[in-house]
Amino acid sequence: MADNTGSRAAVEAATEPFVAHRSLLFTVAYEMLGSAADAEDVVQETWLRWADIGDDARAEVRDPRAYLVRVVTRQALNRLRTLARQREDYVGEWLPEPLLTSPDVAEDVELAESVSIAMLTVLETLGPAERAVFVLREVFEVPYDEIAEAVGKSEAAVRQIANRARKHVAARRPRMAVSQTEQHEVVARFLAAMNTGDVQALLDVLAPDVVLVSDGGGIVQSVLRPIAGHQRVAALLSRFPQFAPGMALSTIVVNGAVAARLDPFGTLDSAVTFVIEDGRIARINVIRNPHKLERLTAPFELRR
């Protein structure tokens, strides 16, 4: 009978470093792509490339974490360029895919901000290279020389891209961090007002310049263009009890922040995320595309 001890040891030697960093690799890919499905594909491609280089080459890799981050970045960049073309034909507004997250993500304030739907939406306005550089530098603190190798540009060019991306994001990101306690309070007020159709209560919890964005992906009914202004948003949401009688509203933690889920007849219909500023809701994201709701059944482990 053949002794497979050597082959098992080789497989374990390849597997252990990858498994140790898998959550990090998924987080990098997810922040670059805004899609868990695509991030999972990219992580799988990274594993195949890592397993393919052979035992001798793997033994020469001094820093498996850095190596794997470079590989996942290159794969995510390739996927991001393809997705950019596909999203040009997307029906209505495109929003990132929400993830149910564990409490430790919310406790890491910097990680929670970086994976928030609000931040992922801002990152969507960057070009592929800018997004990759920003994520690697600002979120994961990867050295500039390693980023340059990952994105195929000079270190000087990467520094310029990072500076440009940093300014772009700073001008568009939410202005302040909001505690979990305040998030719960504001979201609870919002859901109570929406559940009763109370226009004044809605106006009280919405910022004057609030924006509502809905993503149905052309599969289910949604608002195809953003609705701006608390009067218009309140008028729309006040009709909720009429059009969705018996709809169950509850809070969940999505991408490290307090969010809501809408369940008619026990079936998940929508995930709703918020940007809260000065005790009021400044932005409402209603994610209805059923393909983007498939990962709200179990918490994801995200890591920096």
Rank of each mutant, 00 (worst) to 15 (best):
S250R: 13
R74H: 12
A106Q: 07
L126A: 05
R70F: 07
A37C: 05
L99V: 02
G256P: 02
A260C: 11
V199L: 10
S214F: 06
R159I: 15
G246A: 03
M32F: 07
I252L: 13
E60K: 00
F274R: 14
A177H: 03
A150Y: 03
A20K: 07
R62V: 14
V72H: 01
E45S: 08
S154C: 11
R225M: 06
E277T: 12
A235W: 09
Q221W: 08
G216A: 02
R87L: 07
R79N: 10
V254I: 13
A192M: 06
G218M: 10
A162C: 12
A248N: 10
F274E: 14
S270N: 09
L25I: 09
V233D: 08
E60T: 01
S270R: 08
V61M: 00
V11M: 09
E16N: 15
F190P: 00
A157M: 10
V253K: 02
L203Q: 07
L237M: 11
G266N: 14
R70M: 08
V258F: 09
D3S: 08
Y67D: 14
Q75R: 15
A235Y: 05
S250F: 14
P241I: 01
M32R: 02
E155S: 12
H184M: 15
V223T: 13
A84G: 06
I219Q: 14
E130T: 08
A207N: 01
R58S: 00
L48G: 13
E93C: 10
P143T: 07
D52E: 14
V253R: 04
L268Q: 13
G92M: 09
H230Y: 03
L120H: 12
S179M: 04
A298D: 00
V71A: 00
H168S: 13
T15C: 05
S116E: 03
G218D: 10
L100W: 05
A2K: 13
G256L: 00
A13L: 04
S35D: 06
P98D: 06
N78Q: 11
E12M: 15
I219K: 14
S238L: 04
D89V: 14
G266L: 12
D41Q: 07
E182A: 13
F26M: 13
G266M: 15
L236V: 11
I276T: 12
V122D: 04
A118P: 04
R175Q: 05
V253F: 01
L77W: 10
N289A: 12
N285W: 11
L237H: 06
A235V: 09
W50N: 04
L77T: 09
R175G: 11
R8C: 13
A228N: 09
A170T: 06
L236C: 05
E182M: 14
V61W: 01
V275F: 06
V210C: 01
P299G: 04
A248F: 12
D89I: 12
W47M: 04
A112F: 02
E149D: 14
L136Y: 00
Q231H: 07
A59D: 01
T82L: 09
G127Q: 03
A171I: 04
F274V: 13
I117V: 15
V199Y: 09
E301Y: 09
T73D: 06
F26K: 10
R137I: 09
T101V: 08
T297R: 04
